[in-house]
Structures are given as C-alpha cells and as structure tokens.
Amino acid sequence: MSDTRRMLAEMADPLFAELGPNASEERDLSRLEELGLPLLLVSEAEGGFGGDWLDALTVFRLSGYHALGIDLPALVIQRAEGVDRELAMAFARSCQIAGALDAALALSVGYVNERQQFGRPLGRFQAVQQSLATFACEAAAANCAAMGAAQALDRGAADFEIAAAKLRANRAVEVGTAIAHQVHGAIGFTQEYSLQHLTRRLWQWRSEHGNDAYWSAKLGSRVIARGADNFWPDLTARTD
C-alpha cells in the first residue's frame, strides 16, 4: 500500500467508525468534506484529492466496513469527471460489500470466541469453525475481486473486471450473510445488535447496480462472443 493510501485509510477509518450506520448527509457531510473525501477522484489541479481507483477502493471498502450511513461512494462518483457512472457504482458496491463482509466476519469470530455453550466457546466446535472458514474464503474472494477491478480501472478499460467483481461480490453476500447470522443465533437478528447494519446493507448492495443475473448474462455473452479459444489469452492480456 502506498503512503498516501495508508494515510487516507488512517484518516477515514476512525471517522467512519465514529459516524457509523446512523450518519446522515444533512448532519455529517461537512465532516467528510473536511477530509476532502467527496472530492477523492477530482484532480488536485481542480482542488480535489487527486486519488486513483486504488484509493477509491480503500475509502469505499472502509465505508462498507463501518456500514457508513452516508452513501459516500455515490457522492465521490457524482463529482468525478469522465467516468462511466453506472459501472463505477457497480465497482463501488463491490468494494463496500468486500468491507462489510470483512466486518461481519470479524464480528462473527469475536462473538463465537466469547459466547459459551456446553461449557466452552462456540468457536471450539468444529462445525462452527468450518462454517466460518467458508465465510473467510468468500470474504477473501470479494476483497481480491474488488482489488482486481480497482487495478483494472487504474490501467484503463475495466468493464470485464467490474462485471466479474460485482458478480463475485454478490455471490459472497449470499454465503457470508447466511453464516454470519447462523453463528450469531438469535442476538444477530435483533435491531439492537450491530450485525444487522452490515447484513441489511449487504443484501441491498447485492441488488443495486447489477444483480447476479444481470452481470452473469453480460459477462457470459461477452465471453461466448469472443469464443473459447480467446478466453485465456484475453484473461492474461488484461494483466500483462
């Protein structure tokens, strides 16, 4: 991670944690503006932060991690010049999903290590361990996919990668939210407990800016049109 990006994360993380799910644009937008976050993708020459897409990934992911009540990615993308907004929003939701899945995983691991049943923490039961391992894999995949899409955006055309990243993130939502709730038991199903801020947003983000059917059809038609013999060469040419 570059120094600017680390600095950006160190600024955004505590602020998003403080504002949290109940943040509102009306009350809290100025706090985000103080850090220059809505102008993240505006060039420095035009008074913005001059960030790239990997910077955007860092901020969007953290806004998902803390289930930030303000749709900061939408504000950032509104202000950015020369971007395909629909595609950029699909990328943003992928990043938010990646962050929220990591947060839900951390919450779940913390909970099962604390909650005692049958005289030991839930996390000592192999069935619970294996479920959370599955969740960890899905969260990892969503995070890697978001990273891959950010890198592609920084290189140029990224429609393939964004389609793939959003689709992969969407699929991870299904597995991750189910396991997070299962290991939490009834408490996770309450308004009081914080898991719902993450999972309810995850379900919303899965639908927004392209559900699974939308992106898989789009990606599939494209791959089929290019033909079987071009799939692998195309895939490697994207990163070489």
């Binding site: 995949a141 898989s216 791959v223």
Partner: peptide, 21 residues
C-alpha cells in the same frame, strides 16, 4: 448457458488474481 459461462468466468478471473497474489 450464457449466465453460467459468466458466473464461471468471474470465478476464474478472481481465482487467478488470488493465486497470483
């Protein structure tokens, strides 16, 4: 079939990134 291809292509792309990482 197109949707199935899309889903499997997305996974291949993701796994390649992970493995290379």
């Amino acid at each position: 079939l197109a949707q199935l291809v899309g889903r499997l292509a997305a996974e291949a792309w993701t796994l390649r990134l992970m493995s290379a990482s």
